[in-house]
Design a protein around this nucleic acid. Structure first.
Length: 451
DNA sequence: CACACGGATCGATCAACGGC
DNA sequence: GCCGTTGATCGATCCGTGTG
């Protein structure tokens, strides 16, 4: 994929609205009680719904197939998104990710094995949010990519008694993967599967798999980028900003457990079509975010599309110990005259800290001056810059008057008693030094006068 | 709505260094 | 040689934010 195409995609602000699915004719509503230990699959595949939209929807289980495991069977729905299909401004061909060390940078640790083959994206829909033993995953969406596009497999729980089978079926697929990618999966998806696996004594190797949770790197990359307006890094906010998609009629998260419980009570699967669709969108967007983030890490500064993205990429490099690349990106963000002053100020602060650590004090001083120029006087960064400059001028540049001026500013904006005490101590020392300097100068003046 | 995680912040500590 | 300062690091704590 060439760079310009990618940049264009990133810059694209055009919103793509997901068209509503083709609507099948409404069917007669039939009430079918569901056996607690079994599920009347035939009836489940065509049953009633509450809202008008849902009544018009088809059952997501129409093309589901039974998957047998040692513990019984569950249902699986499969979809392929081939290279000529699109997800927002992305071609599905571009969603293919070869696992490499860029994923290590995103994860903040080494997660790719010697010869990684398959990255598995996982997203759960569950009966609640608590994450405890009572939360049951009723839809486990899995996706992987290859040169042909994206392949998606959704494991569905037709009754609570099939949970063991569902976990076993998921375990089979997970066993073929080298690397797991989720969104907030470290906190939510993986613990849920872990607890349910322990409960049913089914080993799901999800927890052993190298895991990239895209939420932390997404926050680093795109929170300050303000791609999502208010800085939100929820998956759908990032989807709008980076994939250019606005979901029409999407089911809100809080409604998902209720829809599943209604299905369990009455056997109606049509209201779940929106949930299946939501899960597929989440997986495709997760793949798109991962591809974009990996591309940024691989191609660096030239691939970034905004000041915020440059700053975010710098933070990722910084965390990964790639200091040269980090500094280049910080400097690019700091120099961007069109960028938000708060981001530019933060970038200059990072440059100052990097330079100071490398003992490049002159460069650090220039960076602290830039922080002062960009940050409002009362911010913590401005106070930090005043103090750093006071130290520099007192101990290295040996310009006591300038050191004193910075210390006075620092005293005026000190946020706590401890800070005030520290700066007051510095000021007192500076005053003593200045007085001593003056008296020694006076002495030398008289000495010169006498000779 | 529960829960866990990451970050920001602050204070304590310690080694290294320089001024007197 | 003593003493003060700097800068790095570590741990505790708090807050904001993501998941269905």
């Amino acid at each position: 994929m060439d760079l310009s195409r990618f940049r264009d995609a990133a810059r694209q602000t055009r919103r793509v609205v997901v068209p509503p699915r083709a609507v099948p004719p409404a069917r007669e509503l039939v009430y079918v009680p569901v056996d607690a230990d079994g599920y009347p699959l035939d009836q489940v595949r065509s049953w009633c719904a509450e809202s008008e939209d849902d009544q018009l929807a088809s059952s997501p289980l129409e093309d589901a197939r039974d998957v047998s495991t040692a513990y019984g069977s569950c249902l699986v729905v499969e979809r392929d998104y081939l290279i000529d299909e699109r997800h927002g401004c992305w071609s599905c061909a571009d969603l293919h990710v070869e696992p490499d060390d860029a994923l290590d940078v995103l994860a903040g640790k080494a997660i790719t094995r010697a010869q990684p083959q398959r990255v598995l994206y996982v997203d759960l829909e569950t009966t609640g949010l608590s994450g405890g033993a009572g939360t049951v995953p009723f839809l486990v969406g899995c996706a992987w990519t290859d040169a042909e596009g994206v392949h998606l497999r959704q494991f569905f729980l037709p009754s609570f008694s099939a949970e063991r089978a569902l976990l076993a079926a998921v375990a089979d697929l997970v066993g073929e993967a080298d690397c797991l990618v989720t969104f907030n999966g470290r906190t939510f998806d993986v613990p849920v599967i872990e607890v349910r696996g322990a409960f049913h004594r089914v080993a799901v190797p999800l927890c052993d798999l190298p895991h990239l949770d895209m939420l932390p790197p997404a926050r680093q990359l795109w929170r300050s980028a303000s791609v999502a307006g208010d800085g939100s890094c929820r998956l759908m906010a990032l989807e709008e900003a980076l994939v250019g998609l606005t979901r029409e009629g999407d089911v809100p998260g809080w409604e998902i457990p209720g829809r599943y419980f209604a299905f369990i009570r009455h056997g109606d699967a049509r209201a779940l079509e929106a949930v299946f669709h939501h899960n597929r969108c989440d997986l495709l967007t997760l793949a798109a975010l991962t591809a974009r983030a990996r591309f940024l890490v691989r191609h660096g500064l030239e691939a970034t599309a905004s000041t915020g993205e440059r700053f975010g990429l710098a933070r990722l490099y910084h965390r990964a110990g790639r200091l040269e690349q980090a500094e280049a990106c910080y400097r690019a963000a700091a120099d961007d005259s069109e960028g938000k002053p708060s981001i530019r100020g933060a970038a200059w602060r990072a440059v100052a800290l990097l330079c100071r650590r490398a003992r490049r004090y002159a460069e650090a001083t220039v960076a602290w001056e830039q922080v002062l120029a960009l940050e409002p006087e009362e911010t913590p960064s401005a106070r930090e810059a005043r103090e750093a400059l006071a130290i520099h001028h007192e101990h290295r540049a040996r310009n006591l008057e300038r050191a004193r001026a910075h210390a006075e500013h620092a005293l005026a904006i000190a946020a706590s008693a401890a800070q005030r005490a520290g700066v007051a101590h510095r000021l007192a020392r500076l005053d003593k030094k200045i007085a001593r300097q003056a008296s020694s100068l006076t002495g030398r003046f008289w000495e010169l006068g006498e000779t």
